[in-house]
Design a protein around this nucleic acid. Sequence first.
DNA 1: TGGTGTAATTTGTCATTGTCCAGATCTGCG
DNA 2: CGCAGATCTGGACAATGACAAATTACACCA
Lengths: 213, 213
Amino acid sequence: MGGWWEMARAQSSRPYHHGELREALVSAGRKLLEERGIRGFTLRECARRASVSHAAPAHHFASIDDLLAEIATRGYQELAAAMEAEAKRAASTPAARLVAQGVGYMAFAAANPVLFQLMFGREANRFETPALKAAAKGAYLLHVAGVEEVIPQAPAEVKQRMVDFAWASIHGFITLVLEGQIGDGDSPRALKARGLAMLGAMVEAVIRAGGDP
Amino acid sequence: MGGWWEMARAQSSRPYHHGELREALVSAGRKLLEERGIRGFTLRECARRASVSHAAPAHHFASIDDLLAEIATRGYQELAAAMEAEAKRAASTPAARLVAQGVGYMAFAAANPVLFQLMFGREANRFETPALKAAAKGAYLLHVAGVEEVIPQAPAEVKQRMVDFAWASIHGFITLVLEGQIGDGDSPRALKARGLAMLGAMVEAVIRAGGDP
DNA sequence: TGGTGTAATTTGTCATTGTCCAGATCTGCG
DNA sequence: CGCAGATCTGGACAATGACAAATTACACCA
């Protein structure tokens, strides 16, 4: 995080040009988002944290929504990476991989709750950029691939429905947990077990729906 | 909606006392929320729509978050009512009732997408009032009851897990639909069918998990 | 009935915000 | 070396949430 320019700024006077302001704003904005929530997110505070004047961000992001869109886009990329990493780690059977993908999904959401809500929230529809859409699609395709591997011989329509089903269960569960509506008093350990149980039920249902009669 | 005072205001000069300002603010706020999104929600605009000065709301809501909390609380009450109404309408079997409850849930979310996100969003954690918590619990108990009826003989732990499962599927599906991540191009009709298919798969999984071996 | 305290509302103010603008400063290229 | 364009600063503007003080309507009690 703390880049070279911070030291430069601490020793001599700060250089007029930041050098990596765009990155710094995204990074500061991400932290700010988690700290203050969506309604507490502020362009000027991002600028302040990047040690830059309040108007500087304008040269890198046309508006506050542009910055949020960029943050959300990277969120999708990280989400996809987390899913893939977890799936690769436990690559025994297709079913286990699908469960693991779900674990990666939930872990990302738990680690970045506000960002997660920004990505999937209604606000995102207001600043939908092509990059954001593409990134979101990338994550979606992982769900499709995961289900495909579990029930390769099922008809396309059943697969489609099972993708809906799998994704909805995973997404819904972690969303409700983050909001405290599920397992409010549970320990993190118990909560993870609860999540795994749900994932197990989901995968079993998928297999049953897609398997031969 | 349009109350008596509107006519009074139109004919003679507006009375100094609004009479039902609290209600008017909640109602205006709700519309505003859907129109402009959470980030576009403004106390002053609510006041404007209630034909009242910008400082008037302060006597009824301590802060903007207080107003949002009230709106969210009523949302939960309506959500529960929608679930119950739909379940009562199709009261043939427990399974059908559980599906119908899910339909009611989704219909409410589809009709009030931003409000729905406010209720279940991360922002709600910042203004958690006792009333809000109670209202949320009321809706939760409907899920519990619905699952209970379908698998009355299952052990408590299985029931608990199936409540998680059922709620997560329903909540996740409609959330993803509202965000356009599922069935973006589908017609409303096709989308509803897709939702019903998912609900069917969910209920079947619940029955199978809770039934005798 | 009439006065008075209280609740509801308004106007004014302040710090903060997003966005725009003009000017200052730097960087890279010729 | 010089200059054009990118990058950053400082100031401005309207809008916002919150607060304080003044104003108005109402309810209740003497």
